[in-house]
């Protein structure tokens, strides 16, 4: 049974680097009185370090078979929320529980080493999941097939076009059958034919009663792919419901 349960999640980032600390402090106090824009959640924590409140009091649960879309402006906290669900950022406060094998497609490089060839990256992923040699070969065939890479399999990933990288990463992340798939909006880099293929694959995954959480700016994608949309604003949930309702409200705002 795949399930996600988030309870009062809070994520804050410390701002350490950069010399203009006093400047940041000034900005923070200025902004604290007028919380409007996406960057307005600067604050000072109890040890008077400057922190950015990226997510505040987020609570929701996702049950088996749901396809959830995250929508919101830049800096609303979509990527951070995905990373928190993937266990990359552990909660500063609150609790995150995820049941089921995770597949994450979050980074632009997607956890692949650009210097290594496609095949070597597949090998690394197989080691990560502890696959045996035979399964690994089958996986490599499956991914090469899905991604249409043929001759490029033994070339470094950095020589790939962005569409090829996306296809390889997507094939890799979905070929190991995650029960919970977390996906950031980068996958829009594929062409129309790829999106069609990707949707078929995602639908096959979701038919296996798994969970998809995807963040995007594009309302069309959400309408086509999702059964539920969560609208994030300034690190808080503004609205959570059926795609039509949330998208209408979002586009109207």
């Amino acid at each position: 049974m795949a399930a996600i349960d988030v309870d009062n999640l809070e994520i804050t980032f410390p701002l350490y680097h950069g010399a203009a600390r006093s400047l940041k402090g000034t900005v923070a106090t200025m902004l604290a009185s007028a919380r409007t824009g996406p960057a307005a959640h600067l604050a000072a924590d109890r040890r008077s370090r400057i922190v950015v409140n990226v997510l505040r009091s987020i609570s929701f649960s996702i049950s088996q078979g749901e396809r959830v879309g995250l929508i919101g402006g830049n800096g609303a906290g979509k990527t951070t929320l995905l990373r928190a669900l993937g266990g990359i950022y552990e909660p500063v406060a609150g609790r995150v529980r995820v049941q089921g094998r995770l597949g994450t497609l979050l980074d632009a490089q997607l956890g692949m080493n650009p210097e290594l060839t496609g095949r070597e990256n597949i090998t690394l992923r197989s080691r990560y999941f502890g696959l045996d040699k035979q399964t690994e070969m089958a996986l490599a065939r499956d991914v090469a097939d899905f991604a249409d890479l043929d001759a490029f399999m033994d070339m470094p990933v950095k020589t790939y076009s962005s569409g090829m990288v996306v296809r390889l990463a997507f094939g890799l992340a979905t070929a190991i059958l995650p029960e919970v798939l977390l996906m950031d909006e980068w996958f829009m880099a594929g062409d129309a034919a790829f999106l069609d293929k990707a949707r078929r694959r995602i639908e096959a995954l979701v038919r296996g009663a798994d969970i998809l959480v995807v963040s995007t700016h594009q309302p069309d994608i959400l309408r086509q792919w999702c059964t539920r949309v969560i609208w994030l604003e300034n690190g808080q949930i503004r609205m959570d419901g059926a795609p039509e309702d949330v998208l209408d409200a979002y586009l109207a705002s």
């Binding site: 049974m1 795949a2 266990g87 552990e90 909660p91 500063v92 406060a93 609150g94 609790r95 995150v96 529980r97 995820v98 049941q99 089921g100 094998r101 995770l102 999941f129 696959l131 399964t135 089958a138 996986l139 065939r141 499956d142 097939d145 899905f146 979905t174 070929a175 190991i176 059958l177 029960e179 078929r200 694959r201 096959a204």
Partner: peptide, 19 residues
């Protein structure tokens, strides 16, 4: 799905994170 993905589903691991 192209070429059946071959990895058997293992028992669902659980990620439980809090400070």
């Amino acid at each position: 799905m192209s070429g059946a993905p071959q990895v058997p589903k293992s028992g669902s691991p659980t990620l439980d994170l809090s400070p």
